[in-house]
Design a protein around this nucleic acid. Structure first.
Lengths: 345, 345
DNA sequence: TTTTGCACTCTCTATGTGAGAGTGCTAACT
DNA sequence: AGTTAGCACTCTCACATAGAGAGTGCAAAA
């Protein structure tokens, strides 16, 4: 097989994938011959297509229906044939604008996911910032009622969490203030998972010293952190967009896909894989390793603020998606979200 | 039309609805004659069915397909013919148990919605406790960074909300404490919507007195309440259950229904109507007034704690649902959720 | 009032048919 | 060699047709 032919085969694959993405119909030899612009007869194209099929890049839905790309075909297309359109400046500005006027960090994430879904007409997904590297900024206790204390944890300078703690006896405001000060001097600035270790150690020495105030303070703090969820979660927008694609419109398949979104587990695993990646990452069809996603592609990008990777965002849609548009959008959204979170600070 | 016949017609309507709910197929005269146990020929049953159709209680999907109930048919069935099965004691105990071991009030609501959806195999919905009658318990300010203050609002003794407020200058902890004390003495115990009025008035007199500390305190508080959302929201579980019912399995209809869930607006309006009702309320098909719900029924019940109605919960499913099972389940869940929220206190 | 009998309607499932699209293969052409 | 033309073949899709089955409505009989 000489290289010139190989080039031609690649070119034909490219135009086939492009056309299939555009039209959604299996592509036949004649249409491809015409569309390619190469001066070839359908018969020649058929030969090439047969080769591509042997290589596992194409397949026929049935004997006489033209060809569609396989996951491996899309992969080759995306990796080496795809020319990514740079986004138009107006679109970039528009996105920037929409991010700029959101203040709250929670709504920032929501904005990101709904923007992703609106612009791409796919499902947009944003993994919540992970907590495992969260550092405790400060703790505060407020008396709520006789047996309840409200613990407020300020984490990472940008996030606040509340826990309601049941206590054995009533505490006065000044007692609680002292307890909080004590915990703050002990733990402020530490990683959350370090905090709990510190607390345990301190609890031992406090018990030895018989310092009941300190014991109570620590036990309260421990109860607060105990409730700290691993925060494995994501936001999803535009699920319903997926119902409009013919290839997914089988109700049973859709049900399983939506079920997977609800379960969250598999999706989170997949997103986790992109955490370490440095830029846009693409999972095509079976590549993801999850059966429900067999007919879907997932395009992700990690987003970061203050130099640290916080999470992953992206879109989920049919394998037949406009990668050239989707990839830069996911990329830009990740950057903008990061920048917006930075400004938050 | 003599009363005996009327009774018979009602009885036949009842068995028809029961059978249709059970089987999901239009019921023909012969099947109904047999199932009714009345010693009638199919022809007689046909006459009765024709009458019922004239009355708008039944309709035929097409000329020779038997009959199915209309919304009005279901209505009559539910209002006067339905015998509600009391729940089995084991099931009651089981539900109680599941509620009993949840501590957090947010997860209580989630538990309720997922229980509803799991037990009924429909979509479970729980409206979040509404805030309009919320009374402010206390306000607390924490310094976060140079230009940011964290405001913590304790509302209704059981709920806590955070806002991050941008400030012109930096405030010390003691300044903030004094500001909070001031606001607390002013507003604690008041309704949220009263609070804002109070703040506005107070702001005027503070300005006159040129008391800059008070002005700053009030402005901060106002910014905090400004962000107070009306909290029009609900939790939804088991959307995917709805995909398994044939009558809804048209992808386009489903899309519109799910879209309505996302939009939330219409659904909230509907739920609002049940707030004032005292017990289980049922919207059948078109009765709801929302086109997307034409093929759905909604069974709701308000739930209350400490003698006050907090919100509404219920299920959404196809009109053909097992009302006799669903109604007591919704009823019980509302009671149990209320009881659990009470214990929370 | 109820039932019987009967013609009629409508759906559903098979079945068949022809057109259209596309393929694979072979043989001819460059 | 690589390319092309020709051709038989396959598969789907749209459409028509037919019969079975279910159920109806109506008129006449019980």
């Amino acid at each position: 097989m000489n290289p010139e032919l190989h080039d031609r085969a690649q070119y034909l694959l490219k135009t086939l994938v492009e056309r299939y993405i555009r039209e959604g119909q299996p592509v036949g030899s004649r249409a491809l011959a015409r569309e390619s612009g190469l001066d070839l007869s359908p018969a020649t194209v058929r030969n090439v297509m047969a080769d591509l099929e042997d290589m596992g890049l194409l397949r026929s839905p049935h004997t006489s229906a033209g060809r569609v790309p396989t996951a491996r075909g899309y992969r080759l297309f995306v990796d080496t044939l795809l020319k990514i359109e740079p986004l138009e400046m107006t679109q970039v500005k528009d996105l920037e604008h929409r991010f700029s006027r959101v203040q709250n960090s929670a709504t920032l994430l929501e904005t990101a996911s709904s923007l992703l879904s609106n612009i791409t007409h796919l499902a947009g997904i944003v993994m919540l910032p992970r907590q495992d590297h969260a550092t405790l900024r400060q703790v505060e206790y407020l008396p709520l009622s006789e047996h309840q204390v409200l613990a407020i944890l300020v984490v990472n300078d940008r996030e606040v969490q509340n826990r309601i703690i049941r206590t054995e006896r009533q505490y006065t405001a000044s007692e609680l203030e002292r307890a909080a000060n004590y915990i703050n001097s002990l733990c402020a600035g530490k990683d959350l998972y370090l905090v709990r270790e510190t607390l345990l150690e301190e609890l031992k020495s406090a018990r030895e010293q018989m310092n009941m105030m300190m014991v109570a303070a620590i036990e309260m703090a421990d109860k607060a952190f105990e409730q700290c969820p691993p925060s494995d979660d994501f936001l999803l927008a535009g699920q319903t967009n997926l119902m409009e694609y013919g290839e997914l419109s089988d109700v049973e398949k859709l049900r399983q896909l939506f079920e997977a979104f609800n379960q969250k587990r598999d999706i989170l695993h997949l997103l986790d894989q992109s955490l370490k990646a440095s830029g846009v990452q693409i999972f095509i069809g079976e590549e993801s390793g999850y059966e429900v996603l067999d007919d879907c592609s997932v395009v992700t990008s990690p987003y970061e603020a203050e130099g640290e990777v916080l999470g992953v965002l992206g879109v989920i849609g049919p394998t037949r998606m406009a990668y050239d548009r989707v990839i830069p959008i996911v990329d830009l959204t990740a950057r903008l979200l990061g920048a917006a979170l930075n400004k938050q600070h």
